[in-house]
């Protein structure tokens, strides 16, 4: 839930003054206008939603692949781990606008910049959870596997990753929800998606556009969060019969 709020915060911060003025003016016609706008431009909104979704999914796939790999590697090199986690931490606390701005000189304006920025942004939750998920496994389990003659590779894939999976997935969920919000801001550097509606709404003072964009982002975020929540619940139901050794 707090992730959702964080996401919403990001969007509203981006929408900034626009939203504020709506709230203050208390313009009753705004709801009707928004509904009207949405029904007129439903094609465009849907297209931007898909673009947004695509940006998030693609970034998530890349980020999770990198993060899980990094998390696994640093679980073997303790001395290395704190440095890597520190770097990820720094990447995450850079304000999103600043991060995007940094990327522009390197990758220009466009989709790629958005993807790269989002990937860098969302490394920490998954790297950290993969690392701690593996490190905090019961050492007796790993030692039993080793003592019976399993190779390190087999131990990783048959024992460590499956057992750390719930913790890793929790990290992925955090990353995903965070990403959906920041992806809206990525429209600022031309990455596309629902952020476009919001930003052009702001610059034109077109409130229904801003609201339509915010609603779209919220729908995606809620859908994602629900998906993960549901998935985790299924895991933990299974897990309750499996764990607790």
């Amino acid at each position: 839930m707090d992730q959702l709020l964080g996401m919403a915060f990001d969007v509203f911060r981006a929408a900034g003054n626009g939203i504020e003025s709506i709230a203050q003016a208390g313009d009753r016609g705004i709801i009707a206008h928004t509904i009207d706008y949405i029904s007129r431009r439903s094609d465009l909104i849907l297209e931007l939603m898909l673009e947004h979704l695509w940006l998030v999914v693609l970034t998530l796939i890349i980020a999770v692949t990198i993060s899980v790999t990094v998390g696994i590697i640093i679980s073997y090199y303790e001395s290395f781990a704190q440095t890597v986690l520190g770097i990820c931490q720094v990447l995450m606390v850079i304000p999103s606008m600043a991060m995007l701005a940094f990327m522009v000189p390197l990758f220009g304006i466009g989709f790629t910049t958005g993807v790269v920025a989002l990937v860098l942004y969302s490394l920490l939750p998954v790297v950290r959870n993969t690392y701690t998920g593996i490190r905090e496994l019961d050492p007796a389990i790993v030692e039993a596997a080793k003592g019976m003659g399993m190779t390190e590779r087999r131990i990783l894939f048959k024992i460590k990753i499956p057992l750390a999976r719930p913790v890793i997935m929790a990290g992925v969920r955090t990353a995903a929800v965070m990403m959906i919000g920041i992806a809206a801001i990525a429209a600022y550097v031309g990455a596309g998606g629902l952020g476009e509606l919001i930003f052009s709404g702001i610059s034109r003072g077109h409130q229904p556009m801003i609201i339509a964009g915010a609603i779209g982002v919220s729908i995606i975020a809620i859908a994602f969060d629900y998906l993960f929540y549901y998935g985790e619940k299924r895991f933990s139901v299974e897990g309750s019969t499996r764990e607790g050794n």
Partner: peptide, 9 residues
């Protein structure tokens, strides 16, 4: 092993 160490999954 002393702690049994069965694989819980």
């Amino acid at each position: 092993i002393q702690e049994i160490g069965l694989f819980p999954h």
